[in-house]
Amino acid sequence: MAELLQLAGSIVSILFIAWLARFWRLGGDVRIHSEAHARDLAEETLCGFNPVDIAIDKAGIAALLRDDQGRHLLIRRHGVQWAGRLLDRHSESRLDQNFLTIGTGEKTFGTITLNLGEQAPSWASGLRHLNNGPHKTGNTHA
């Protein structure tokens, strides 16, 4: 009984703390504000990824980058941080005028729709021809 009460107390406490974090507006609204910023995020996501072409979503919540080997890296906002995936032939993309929707094939990573303006068709075409071979993406190590 004491253990159950302790567990209930823990659950109430964590919900209170999470509510407090929201109430105090912790977190924030991060955006990709420049190509240099996108380049930094790419390096953080995949050490050594050197983009030669960059497309940033109009709202700055995601970016698509291509390196000189033709690899495509998707970076998107995750809370107030960033997460990315190297796209491969398992990725899905759908073009709707200026909007490009990309799925990485990972259900938990989700899909992201980027407003790339006039650049959208050319990036969609690039993704369709994606055939990178094996990728160095399977590591979750810290």
Binding site: L15, I17, A18, A21, R22, G27, G79, Q81
Partner: peptide, 13 residues
């Protein structure tokens, strides 16, 4: 404020 993210905090706890 960016040092905390409510959803991340909830997941951690």
């Amino acid at each position: 404020p960016e040092k905390y993210e409510p959803r991340d905090t909830l997941t951690s706890l």
